[in-house]
Simulated scan of single mutants.
Amino acid sequence: MGEAHAFRIQSSGYEQGLPDLRRVREAVFVEEQGVPLALEWDELDPDCHHVIARDAAGEPIGTGRLTPARSIGRMAVLPEWRGRGVGEALLAALVEQARTLGWREVSLHAQASAIGFYARAGFLPVGERFQEAGIEHQGMRLLIDALNLVESRAAAIAATLGVVAGARRQLDIYTRELDPGLLDQSAVVDAIRRLAARGECAIRILLQEPAAAQRALAPLIALSQRLPSAIAFRAVEEQVDRAWPSAFIANDRGGHLFRPLGNRWEGETRLDAPGRARHLRGVFEPFWERARPCSEYRALGI
């Protein structure tokens, strides 16, 4: 990171950090998003653990807080610093603080536009969306250093985003027919496209029913035609392999989503379990070696 983009994360007490907290939170929430000033500051603030991101000159550029109710909130980054990893660093510092305190889980209310951001850090949506300060929000939760249960399609999408975002050199996907409702969602397709476009990651997708995905014009097929060096498809043909009921996605950095029944959303996920991810990739390998390349996908015109 160049000096112009350098920043650091600093813990802060409420009274000590109040002037800098105001500079960021009021700029983002009150001025930019229109949250009433009276709603921005609450009785929890004095009892929270606050973190402040500062630029190379020490000026505040981002904030976040951890409340006594074991929730993360008031995550804000000044517009000119977005997309530079500041939010990710703030969130990681707050989760690490929760871990230090011995907390087993943390929750948060994510603005709807930020669900993907929190999903990439392992948070899963819980319950229905709701309005808070006039803005649509989604409750999300992370179990720290533990498997997180996936209980809905929305949670499966979030878990997939987390596993894809964590991949570096390898991403393996085992699926029945490219999971309609999951692997065809725009957020997931965009995440896989960004990963493939980097040119550093081999993405292997193994299917049980390639014809069904082809008939459905699954968007990942078209994406593989544009990026054939990064995305490879194979189809399971051995009967014993076709009888395997599960589905999963696993990366080379310890992230996985495993669903015992591939036609259901329920399963488990964790982004920092290298042993489990390594096991799933070991399951994948012999299936992949016995499968046939999906040459029909290369010829398909969409």
Rank of each mutant, 00 (worst) to 15 (best):
E3Y: 07
A6Y: 09
Y14V: 02
G17Q: 06
R23V: 06
V24C: 00
E26A: 05
V28D: 01
V30Y: 03
E31I: 05
Q33M: 15
W41C: 03
A56W: 05
P60G: 03
G73H: 10
R74V: 04
R74G: 14
W81R: 13
G83R: 06
G83T: 04
V86Q: 04
E88P: 00
V95T: 10
L101K: 08
L101E: 15
G102H: 09
G102L: 12
W103K: 04
W103Q: 11
A110S: 14
A114L: 12
F117S: 02
Y118R: 04
A119H: 07
A121Q: 14
G127M: 04
G134H: 08
I135S: 00
H137C: 04
I144H: 05
I144T: 06
A146N: 09
V150L: 07
E151N: 15
E151T: 14
S152K: 04
A155K: 02
I157R: 14
A158W: 03
A159R: 09
A159N: 01
A159D: 07
T160D: 04
V163I: 13
A165N: 06
A167L: 07
A167W: 04
Q170F: 02
D172W: 11
D172A: 05
Y174T: 01
G181E: 06
Q185E: 15
S186C: 08
D190H: 11
A196K: 09
Q208C: 01
E209Y: 12
L217N: 15
Q225R: 14
P228F: 09
I231C: 02
A232D: 09
R234S: 12
E237F: 05
E237Q: 10
A247V: 03
F258L: 15
P260A: 11
L261N: 12
N263K: 09
R264C: 08
W265R: 06
E268D: 06
T269D: 02
L271Y: 10
P274F: 06
G275V: 12
R276T: 15
R276D: 02
H279R: 11
G282L: 12
G282R: 13
V283R: 14
E289C: 02
A291I: 08
R298I: 07
